[in-house]
Design a binder for these strands. Structure first.
Lengths: 254, 254
DNA sequence: CCCCGCCGTTTGTCCGGACAACCGAACTTC
DNA sequence: GAAGTTCGGTTGTCCGGACAAACGGCGGGG
């Protein structure tokens, strides 16, 4: 038995700034998250009861609970009635965000690059129209890109967006991901429907990706919606299975 | 302009049972969710302000807020300060749960079946030991299964569990999924780390799945943790790409 | 020695109120 | 007519308190 494991955060110093416009519960949750991240709050250690914590910080219990709850939702803390709140043992990293491949590669230390093959406006095919909830033949923007890492092709990306949603500059697309541009344009992404599968590459696809014909490729189709429910993007992507796999963490809803 | 779209849930009837052990906020959130599911609350319609809703139900505003917040977390509602709470327009289905293939197939109307090929205890290989956080050579349970739908092979599943975690009956495994059994045994699943990729099937794998050698297959590796942080399961799965794809919905964290 | 119930601790739920921040629309002003 | 301003309505944040429910350890009884 190590007493440390249970002593927890009693001696940890947290503080809030009431003059800040940042909500108090958010200030606290950020400090707690940072302490967990840096190991100052050891996995398995108890956080100390909410009443005392509130008292030490000069906050009310609901505010402290709100801060804790946000970290529980992130999977960093676990609450047990009659026991207390403790830091989870496992290494929780990132619970599957809606991030672009560009950000993924950049975070992994790869040097991503993009080659824009097409950036045009076309009438929507039946499949694209159905995915975006538009009438067939409506004008949509088609973006075809090749994503590279360390100069090697990684994926072939086709995206369709409703025309007029916002202007897409090819130069900007070379330097960052699509989602970053959409967020910057004031579009609030809300949810996405995805399908991940696999198939054999056609000769043309193999050519583009540097794989032989018939090589296995990962496929992903995704429709993204904003918070008004409009479909704002439909993508059909192909990844080199020999060089890429989707990695993510998911949490279980209690 | 249709007034209906904004009139919202004013005339909808909700009620709570204070003698029930089910929390009041949960009763309300279930009724709201059912109303949305059945279309009684139209997409885009406003929910009516929280104060009135609380008054009509004889609840306090925090309780109503808690009910609404749980549906916001599920992606069914969107709140806008100064505007109100409205039902999202898009069809939100299921935000990617940690569910077994068995449940997925059953929900899709396929008739799943399982053939248990192996159910033994063996010393852990280096790979399995690393995934489960055990010492190499520690005894682990190995379960090898073939999953069928409509009598056709769909996937080949290999799972390793720490020995002694709970007893696995082959007969039970034929009738349901692994996660359901684990939950029934009192193990609270907390999070999982997954990797989804693709490759060509070996001759042996093709034989088992009814695919030619070299056919593309989807691969998934998954390590599942309980809420104490222990790894409770490691799985290495292969799916017929011609017959199966992962479909899921994901929400954007605000 | 083992099982069972008691009891303190801690989180879960719920209340009622207060003020701030924000949005949209009506209004005023130029 | 257009732009800026005010104002009502709604959600966001925060407080202090109260009781209930679950867990774990303790002691008593078999």
């Amino acid at each position: 038995m190590q007493g440390e494991d249970s002593s927890g955060a009693a001696e940890l110093q947290f503080s809030v700034d009431r003059s800040s416009p940042v909500p108090l519960y958010f200030q606290l949750s950020q400090q707690l998250e940072a302490a967990i991240e840096q190991g100052r709050l050891a996995p398995g250690s108890l956080l100390g009861n909410e009443i005392d914590l509130a008292g030490r910080l000069g906050l009310s219990r609901p505010t402290v609970r709100q801060a804790i709850q946000s970290l529980v939702d992130k999977g960093l803390l676990v609450r047990r009635r009659g026991v207390g709140t403790q830091v989870v043992h496992s290494q929780v990293k990132r619970p599957l965000e809606l991030s672009s491949l560009y950000d993924d590669l950049e975070a992994a230390g790869q040097r991503p690059a993009t080659r824009v093959l097409r950036n045009t406006t076309e009438p929507a095919t039946a499949e694209v129209a159905a995915a975006l909830g538009l009438a067939e033949g409506t004008d949509v923007v088609l973006i075809e890109r090749l994503r590279l890492a360390h100069g090697e092709p990684m994926a072939h990306l086709c995206n369709w967006l409703p025309a007029g949603l916002f202007t897409l500059d090819s130069a900007e697309l070379e330097g960052t991901g699509l989602y970053r541009l959409m967020r910057a344009a004031g579009i609030t992404l809300h949810s996405a429907r995805q399908a991940v599968g696999a198939r054999a590459a056609t000769a043309e696809e193999g050519e583009e990706l540097g794989e032989p014909e018939g090589a296995p490729v990962l496929t992903m189709e995704r429709t993204t919606f904003d918070d008004t429910g409009r479909a704002v993007e439909f993508g059909s992507h192909i990844y080199r299975a020999s060089r890429y796999a989707f990695e993510f963490q998911l949490l279980v809803r209690p």
